[in-house]
Amino acid sequence: METFAGRTARLVVSNDGEVPLDLMLEPWGDVHRILPKEKCVVVTHSSSRDGSWPGTQLGDEPFEVDHRSDSVTVWANGHCFHLSDRKGNEIDPYVYGGCPAQNQAT
């Protein structure tokens, strides 16, 4: 198996509120509900040899975040994303976008 030669970025999203918070993950349109006092980690990978992020115009921004009162939208600018808890355990076993580093960098 070829070693993953790209980059991995992680973004912790927390719900410090009293009601569930919808986490929208773009550009895939996936929604995950974060319960009160819960945290999850959005993980994205770029397989570019130069380490750039394909979803951003600037090339060096793995995420863009937009927050509203009942939801947060995270644009994961890599080739894929998956969710985990703070210990690295996958929250949803389905990986979006065919991650090049699915079993190598979580």
Rank of each mutant, 00 (worst) to 15 (best):
T3W: 12
T3M: 12
T3K: 11
T3L: 13
F4C: 03
A5T: 15
A5P: 15
A5L: 15
G6H: 07
R7L: 07
T8K: 06
T8F: 03
A9F: 07
R10V: 07
V12M: 14
V12K: 15
V13S: 00
S14C: 12
N15K: 10
N15E: 03
D16H: 12
E18D: 13
E18I: 10
V19T: 15
P20C: 14
L23Y: 00
L23T: 04
E26F: 00
E26Y: 00
P27Q: 03
P27Y: 02
G29A: 13
D30H: 01
D30Q: 01
V31E: 11
V31Q: 10
I34E: 01
I34C: 04
L35G: 15
P36A: 11
E38W: 02
K39G: 04
K39F: 03
V41K: 01
V41E: 06
V43C: 11
T44I: 02
T44G: 05
S46W: 06
S46E: 00
S46I: 02
R49L: 14
D50Y: 12
D50M: 09
G51E: 04
S52I: 07
S52A: 09
S52M: 08
G55K: 03
T56A: 10
Q57T: 13
Q57Y: 14
L58K: 15
D60A: 15
D60I: 14
P62V: 03
P62I: 04
F63P: 08
E64F: 06
V65A: 13
D66L: 09
H67D: 11
R68Y: 11
S69N: 13
D70L: 11
S71A: 14
S71R: 15
S71H: 11
S71G: 08
V72P: 04
V72D: 02
V72H: 07
V72K: 09
V74I: 04
A76N: 06
N77W: 03
G78T: 01
G78Q: 02
H79P: 14
H79F: 10
C80F: 13
F81N: 02
L83D: 09
L83C: 05
L83M: 06
L83K: 01
L83R: 00
S84L: 06
R86H: 11
R86Y: 09
K87P: 05
K87A: 14
N89R: 09
I91D: 08
D92V: 10
D92L: 12
D92R: 13
P93I: 04
Y94T: 11
Y96C: 02
G97H: 10
G97E: 04
G98R: 12
G98A: 07
P100F: 00
P100D: 00
A101C: 08
A101Q: 04
A101Y: 05
N103L: 14
Q104A: 09
Q104K: 02
A105L: 11
A105T: 10
T106F: 05
